[in-house]
């Protein structure tokens, strides 16, 4: 069911409308939010895909599934930015995800934030669909902050291979994710791809993950009773297991790897060339073994810019090795 949850008149006569879709019986729902940034289009695509899928179930067109819980989706939060084709709404230049908890009587961004929080406050689970920051691409993965046992279970049930624990940020307290956590809504963010693009393959990974999650939590019943061939185990990486690869030259980046690749230490990631002469200024290589989770997409780079983030288990294994050695010595 598509429902209008906020209508704001605009100065030139039209209305800004915020919608949610709801399926299933009443109860503590799973809320899925996308379009906090106007250029995060993978989330919009994924939510539309979910809408089609859930519609077909409740309309009885898909004999394999029954919806046993409640799901609500909020496909487009930053309506003005999506309509403008930009990350932020040009009129206020505000990052929508810095507007929470919002204010129903406040400016447009605050009123939208307040409506989203109001309509998700009774959720049991929350998932925010996001993409990499501007000019980067993410391999599909889960993002958490300080996951408790319920959120670790969410990660396991999503069966997406990789999860990253985020560092503290001074702006986190005005994010939707933080406010969900404050309200004890079990929540994660899932990220894939680049802003301004849709990558159906990456979205499919996340779609299957959300399906896995809904089945595991009893929101969705699969009548085929088919056990998964290989249950994917999710590994949660800590911030100190992330390795940033930075440029020391500025110019044009030509990359030779793809997000999601596992790189060996010394493997070439790409090179920076001088824009005028075409000469190679720098070769960038993986400083250690690791999963390439984020890669620079836009080729023009400044000095000192991160162009890749690798997830490496090295620190963890070093720590475990250290503890093991000290036990052996004792």
């Amino acid at each position: 069911m598509k429902e209008k949850i906020l209508t704001l008149p605009t100065p030139y006569g039209g209305n800004l409308e915020l919608h949610k879709n709801t399926w299933g019986k009443s109860g503590e729902p799973l809320s899925i939010v996308s379009g906090l940034q106007g250029d995060h289009l993978n989330g919009l695509f994924l939510n539309s895909h979910l809408t089609q899928f859930l519609d077909s179930i409740v309309e009885g067109l898909d004999p394999h599934y029954t919806l046993t819980g409640q799901v609500q989706t909020f496909p487009v939060v930053n309506v003005n930015a999506v309509q403008s084709g930009t990350r932020l709404w040009p009129l206020d230049g505000m990052d929508m995800d810095l507007a929470f908890p919002g204010n129903p009587e406040g400016e447009t961004a605050e009123a939208i934030a307040s409506a989203i929080l109001q309509h998700t406050k009774d959720s049991f689970w929350g998932i925010i669909l996001t993409s990499a920051p501007p000019h980067y691409e993410d391999a599909p993965h889960i993002q958490t902050h300080k996951p408790d046992s319920r959120e670790k279970k969410m990660c396991r049930d999503l069966q997406i291979e990789t999860a990253r624990r985020q560092k503290d940020s001074p702006t986190q307290k005005v994010n939707l994710f933080h406010h969900w956590q404050e309200q004890e809504i079990s929540s994660v963010m899932v990220s894939a791809g680049s802003p301004r693009t849709i990558n159906p393959q990456q979205c499919e990974v996340l779609f299957q993950g959300i399906l896995n999650f809904m089945k595991a939590e009893g929101i969705l019943k699969d009548h085929r009773n088919k056990k998964p061939d290989n249950k994917i185990k999710t590994r949660i990486y800590d911030p100190d297991e992330e390795v940033l690869v930075r440029t020391s030259a500025a110019g044009m980046l030509l990359k030779e790897v793809k997000v999601g690749n596992f790189l060996k230490k010394g493997q070439k990631i790409g090179e920076v060339r001088d824009i005028y002469s075409g000469k190679r200024l720098e070769e960038l290589a993986a400083p250690e073994d690791g999963l390439l989770i984020t890669l620079r997409q836009y080729p023009i780079v400044y000095e000192k810019e991160p162009i890749a983030i690798l997830l490496s288990g090295k620190d963890r294994w070093q720590k475990i090795g250290h503890v093991f050695q000290s036990i052996v010595k004792r």
Binding site: D95, L98, P133, K167, D168, S169, P170, T171, L244, T294, P306, I309
Partner: peptide, 10 residues
């Protein structure tokens, strides 16, 4: 909006 951040990814 970036002061005091412990993230160094930009």
């Amino acid at each position: 909006r970036t002061f005091g951040s412990r993230q160094t990814d930009s």
